[in-house]
Amino acid sequence: MEKKKLSTTFKLLRALGFNYSEEEYGDVSLGRVVWQFFHNIRQKHRQNMMDWAILEPFAPRKLRPRLMRKMGCHVGEGCFIGDHVRIDQGHADMITLEDGVSVASGTRLLCHQRDFKDYFVGSDYNKLGYIVKPIVLKKGCLVGMESFVMPGVTIGEGAIVGAGSLVTKDIPAWTIAAGRPAKVLKEIPRRDSEV
């Protein structure tokens, strides 16, 4: 198998400690890396503002949703965002929270992860590509504290995800799910039905 010759830019980036793969990122320019560097600092500053204690009375329903919008997320009206919620800053535009969504403290919303389908003994982890897919939290759903929502997941309307869950697959509307990985435990009954 013939080795591909690295461009001068990639050699420079590798010398500076960046481990980009040309297969994954294409021909990355130094200018693009510099732009991304400053963009990441700005996004990180916004992320940190979400946890400023002095703003706590306004933060969950006013400040944090507004900052998430500024970071690129699609956030509806009346959303509650707990403290220390972290989003995938590089793919913030792929995160949608519809009206009335609640995301409890410490939750992570991740739109990318390594793709392990071509990972075998002797493979180089750093050369694996990524799975990049959007996350959609439907109207009125709740994601419990310290949960992880992984790429490509849709959490249905009114669904509840228990604290500490790892959500790797879609959660249907009006259900309660929990666990690692999260599984549906119960359907939420209609008010007029007998329990």
Rank of each mutant, 00 (worst) to 15 (best):
P189Y: 07
I135Y: 05
L109R: 00
V153N: 05
Q89T: 09
S21E: 13
I41R: 08
M150A: 07
I131S: 02
I54Y: 12
V149A: 01
L30R: 08
Q47P: 03
H45E: 00
G129C: 02
G144C: 09
E98C: 09
T9K: 10
R46Q: 09
K186L: 05
D88C: 10
H39T: 04
P134A: 09
E2Q: 13
K139S: 11
H39V: 07
L13S: 01
W174V: 00
V161P: 05
V34K: 10
E187S: 12
G76V: 08
P60N: 03
V33P: 05
R69E: 13
S123E: 10
V103L: 03
Y119D: 00
H39L: 12
H39N: 11
Y25G: 09
R64C: 06
N40V: 08
N48C: 12
S105H: 14
E187F: 00
A178Q: 12
I95G: 08
Q36V: 10
Q43M: 15
P57A: 04
T96W: 01
I135D: 05
R66M: 15
A177E: 00
L109P: 00
M71A: 12
A159C: 05
N40L: 11
I95P: 03
I135Q: 04
K133D: 07
R108C: 13
Y119T: 01
V132C: 05
E77F: 09
V149Q: 01
G90N: 11
C111H: 06
V195F: 13
G152P: 02
P189C: 04
Y119P: 04
G122K: 10
S7I: 11
I81E: 01
V85K: 00
E23T: 13
D27N: 14
H84K: 14
C79K: 09
K127E: 11
Q43N: 08
K62G: 02
F58T: 04
I131Q: 08
V28D: 07
F148L: 14
R61H: 12
E194A: 14
V149C: 03
L166K: 06
K44R: 13
E187R: 10
V103I: 14
H112G: 05
V33G: 02
C111N: 03
F120Y: 15
M50N: 07
Y119L: 10
I87Q: 03
M145E: 12
K44P: 00
L6Y: 13
E194I: 11
K139F: 03
P60V: 01
R46M: 11
P189R: 02
